[in-house]
Design a binder for these strands. Structure first.
Length: 119
DNA sequence: TTCCTGACAATGC
DNA sequence: AGCATTGCCAGGA
């Protein structure tokens, strides 16, 4: 049979998976791009998660895109952009506090299936 | 098809 | 704690 080396993952295939994962992030929690990619069965495709959100561009109101931040705990957008302010305020509104310009994964990181951190 | 870009990330200094 | 480098992978020109 005509052999196919590996399945080239296209946006059409991946986006639904990615969005599905993002929709599972609980309110008041955050997840990194890499974490979402992994959970969506796309390990190593962190950049694709970013692309998916960029393409969505707020097109999916149901999507809690603001709960997605980079591995450094920072918002992956220019400080000067509108989206940055929007994302930060949304997070704060959910009780996610910033330490300077970053969020603590230890406190707000989404750990699938684990109990909330009560400190 | 090559080259450049990007809501990323791990590593090294 | 930053900053630069390198790896990564899909899109778009």
């Amino acid at each position: 049979m005509t052999r196919v080396p590996s399945k080239p993952i296209t946006a059409a295939d991946a986006y639904p998976l990615i969005f599905a994962v993002i929709r599972r992030i609980p309110r008041g929690k955050v997840a990194s791009y890499a974490q979402i990619a992994y959970a969506a069965g796309l390990p190593g495709r962190a950049r694709m998660v970013g692309r998916a959100l960029a393409d969505a561009g707020g097109a999916g109101p149901k999507l809690p895109w603001h709960r997605v931040i980079n591995a450094q705990g920072r918002i992956a957008l220019p400080r000067s952009s509108e989206a940055y302010v929007e994302q930060k305020s949304r997070l704060i509104a959910e009780g996610v506090l910033f330490e300077g310009d970053r969020v603590s994964f230890t406190r707000y990181g989404w750990k699938r299936g684990s109990a909330p951190v009560l400190d």
